[in-house]
C-alpha cells in the first residue's frame, strides 16, 4: 500500500498554557478527500498550519508527501497548495494578476506561466472575468480564485481551510465538484468545513473537539460507531415545548431540534408508542413519528456535546 499523503502522529501545539492541539494522530491517503470537522476554535486551523510548515509543533511529528515538515518545511511548501481560512488574495489586483503573482512566487517560469494560468482559469471557471479586480467579485468567485491560486503550481496535496464558508449553495456545489475532479486525478485534499453535506462527501473525516481527536473514519463508519442507537424523527405541535417532554420520557437518551422536527436518540424504536402517549397526554398533537437514519449532523452534535463516548 502507498504511504499516506498526509500523516501526523501525536501532534501537539501549545500557546503558553493553552493546548490548542492535543496529541492528534491522523492519516490521509493519496487521492482521497479528508474532512476535518470541529467547532470553531477546536484546533483545526492550528493543525493545518503545522502540517503546512507555517507553525512549528510543540511535539509530535507531521509528515506530508513523505517529508518531515519540521525538518524541511520549505520542501513541503513547494509541494502543497494552501488556502487559508482568511481570504488572502490581493483585492486591488485583477484575477489574472493575482494568479500571475502566485505563479511568480511558486517559481513558475514566465514562459510556462501564461498557459498554466489559462488552464487554471478554465478549471476554476473564471474565464469570464480574468481582468476584473478581485474586490468586485462575489465571495463564491473569490474562493474559486483562491483555490486557483493554490492549484497553479499543480501540488499533489491541498490544504483547504473552510474554503466554502460564506459561499452560496450553488457555488459550493461547483467548488466540491472541482474537489472531486482533483482527487480523481490523484490529488489528496484535506478540507475543513462546517457543512454536513460537504462532510458526507469526504472519504474520511476526523472530528476534533478542544484540540483532541474525537472520532476518525468514513462517514458511514462514524454513523455506525458513534450512533449505535436508533433515531426517531418526531413531527408534533409546539416542538419547542415538546422537546422537554420527549427528553424526560424513559428510553430517550437525547433529543434535539432538527429544523421543525425533533430528533430523539432512543434505546429502542418501540419507545415511539410511549412518546406518542406522553405528548398527547400533555396536549401536543402528534402528526408523525418515524425512524430515520442517523445523519452526520446527529453524530457531530452528539460528539461536539461530548455525549459520543457516553
Amino acid at each position: 500500500m502507498m504511504p499516506p499523503a498526509i500523516a501526523c502522529v501525536d501532534l501537539v501545539r501549545r500557546f503558553g498554557t493553552f493546548t490548542a492541539v492535543d496529541r492528534i494522530t491522523l492519516q490521509a491517503h493519496v487521492g482521497s478527500v479528508f474532512g476535518f470537522l470541529g467547532p470553531n476554535g477546536s484546533g483545526k486551523s492550528t493543525t493545518i498550519r503545522m502540517l503546512c510548515g507555517l507553525l512549528a509543533p510543540t511535539s509530535g511529528q507531521a509528515i506530508v508527501d513523505g517529508i518531515d515538515v519540521a525538518r524541511d518545511p520549505e520542501s513541503v511548501k513547494r509541494r502543497i497548495g494552501y488556502m487559508s481560512q482568511k481570504f488572502s488574495l490581493y483585492e486591488d489586483l485583477t484575477v489574472r494578476e493575482n494568479l500571475e503573482f502566485y505563479g511568480g512566487i511558486y517559481g513558475i517560469g514566465r514562459r510556462g506561466r501564461r498557459a498554466r494560468i489559462d488552464e487554471t482559469l478554465e478549471r476554476t471557471d473564471l474565464t469570464d472575468n480574468p481582468d476584473t479586480l478581485v474586490r468586485e467579485l462575489s465571495v463564491g468567485v473569490r474562493q474559486r480564485l483562491a483555490l486557483g491560486g493554490a492549484l497553479l503550481h499543480r501540488p499533489r496535496i491541498l490544504f483547504l481551510d473552510e474554503p466554502t464558508s460564506g459561499v452560496d449553495p450553488i457555488s459550493r456545489r461547483r467548488f466540491w465538484s472541482l474537489i472531486h475532479e482533483l482527487t480523481a486525478e490523484g490529488a489528496t485534499i484535506l478540507v475543513t468545513t462546517h457543512y454536513m453535506d460537504e462532510a458526507e462527501q469526504c472519504d474520511r473525516i476526523a472530528l476534533i473537539r478542544s484540540g483532541k481527536l474525537v472520532a476518525d473514519g468514513s462517514p458511514a463508519d462514524l454513523k455506525r460507531e458513534l450512533m449505535p442507537w436508533p433515531i426517531l424523527s418526531i413531527d408534533c405541535a409546539n416542538p419547542f415545548e415538546a422537546l422537554d417532554i420527549i427528553a424526560r420520557t424513559p428510553g430517550v437518551r437525547d433529543a434535539a431540534l432538527y429544523g421543525v422536527h425533533i430528533h430523539a436518540v432512543v434505546e429502542d424504536t418501540a419507545v415511539a408508542d410511549a412518546l406518542r402517549t406522553a405528548l398527547e397526554a400533555s396536549g401536543h398533537a402528534v402528526y408523525r413519528i418515524e425512524g430515520v437514519a442517523a445523519t452526520l449532523e446527529d453524530v457531530f452534535v452528539a460528539a461536539a456535546e461530548g455525549d459520543a463516548d457516553a
Binding site: 510548515g53 511548501k77 487559508s84 511558486y106 491560486g149
Partner: peptide, 17 residues
Amino acid sequence: ERGTIEQLVASPLRARE
C-alpha cells in the same frame, strides 16, 4: 492585517526575496 501574509509564508517565497 489583510491576511495575505499567511499565503506568502505558506509559499516557497524567501524572506530575502
